[in-house]
Design a protein around this nucleic acid. Structure first.
Length: 318
DNA sequence: TGCCCCCTGCAG
DNA sequence: CTGCAGGGGGCA
């Protein structure tokens, strides 16, 4: 159920460990989870890992570039291939490094079997257990011996195999709004000030701005002291500005802490794996708890657009 | 612009 | 059992 900070965390990890590796084979374990021709990506080298909102893209080298163009940005290579990955609600990636390459988490006191694992996405027991698991939908085999598992309980997520043209034409990408830090207050205001919907629903609409989901929408609104139910049209430019800054604050904090690892199965002890933003939740999943700011404010939960919505009725005004 | 759907698994 | 879960697409 990851949002921008969780995907960004995965991206940074994969950039570190995957770029330069050759993908030997992509295995499809569930037909809905992997779309496209898996043979296309065989024996292709990873040239980069990018993020667009909540979508991850692993770039693969196409044909060998002429010598003079070797230094050119591989992203401009029109023969390149791409693995576009969306976790949706329950996707996760687990990279299991081959024994000879294990190097991570020396400071963490993990079991030896976990020392060569890099985990990201929806936190579940699969982070710790035997792989592939019953939720494994795709397996990426790398020439180093490293293996990456795409797990997804609910099968909402996907891995799309695309050439560079299809990537550019991907509807999800075409319709994707900008990230909050890439627009000005005025641009943000212009985007929303004619919309009557509750502001929280707009924040989560990826075609308005991208990357913000339920956690960071709730927490960003708390930062700005704006009620999630407020009609976007009712916000002033000043409020919009404060909101944009609040969103940036919580998103950046999310990235800083490696995302949130709030498992819905709270009894699972993830043994220090994953991020820590959940320790800094302002409102999300804090129903009945004290507002961190206002004296006597108690976090309330309502439903907005079918999604759980958390706020402090005392300091977040309509 | 809402509403329903895609799915599985867990808590209450 | 029912409702809920950090997402998003298709439909009227």
């Amino acid at each position: 159920m990851p949002e921008l900070p969780e995907i960004e965390t995965v991206k940074l990890q994969l950039q570190k460990y995957l770029v330069g590796q050759k993908l030997v084979e992509l295995e499809r374990l569930h037909p809905k989870s992997v779309q496209g021709d898996i043979l296309l990506v065989q024996s292709k080298k990873v040239t980069g890992v990018r993020r667009f909102g909540k979508m991850l893209v692993i770039d693969l080298a196409g044909r060998r570039l002429p010598r003079l163009r070797q230094t050119a940005d591989p992203r401009n290579d029109e023969s390149a291939l791409h693995l576009a990955i969306h976790f949706k609600m329950s996707g996760q990636l687990i990279l299991v490094k081959s024994d000879k390459r294990k190097a991570i988490s020396k400071e963490r006191n993990l079991g030896s079997a976990l020392k060569n694992r890099i985990v990201g996405g929806h936190p579940t027991e699969d982070w710790l257990g035997k792989l592939p698991s019953k939720h494994t939908r795709a397996i990426f085999h790398f020439s180093s011996g490293d293996t990456m598992y795409f797990n997804d309980q609910r099968i909402f997520g996907w891995v799309k195999i695309l050439d560079s043209k299809s990537l550019k034409e991907l509807k999800f990408l075409k319709n994707l709004g900008p990230e909050v830090w890439d627009i000005t207050d005025q641009e943000f205001y212009d985007k929303i000030h004619k919309r009557k919907k509750p502001i929280k629903i707009l924040l989560m609409d990826q075609n308005v701005i991208s990357g913000v989901g339920n956690i960071y929408a709730n927490d960003g609104l708390w930062e700005a002291r704006i009620s999630p139910e407020t009609s976007a049209a009712a916000l002033t430019l000043e409020q919009t500005s404060v909101l944009r800054k609040g969103l940036i604050k919580v998103l950046k904090e999310g990235i800083k802490y490696g995302g949130a690892t709030a498992s819905d199965a709270k009894y699972i002890d993830l043994q220090g794996l994953g991020g820590h933003y959940q320790e800094h939740f302002r409102t999300y999943d804090r129903t009945g708890e004290k507002c961190l700011r206002s004296d006597g404010g108690i976090i309330k939960k309502t439903v907005l657009g079918g999604r759980g919505t958390y706020f402090c009725p005392k300091c977040q005004k309509l």
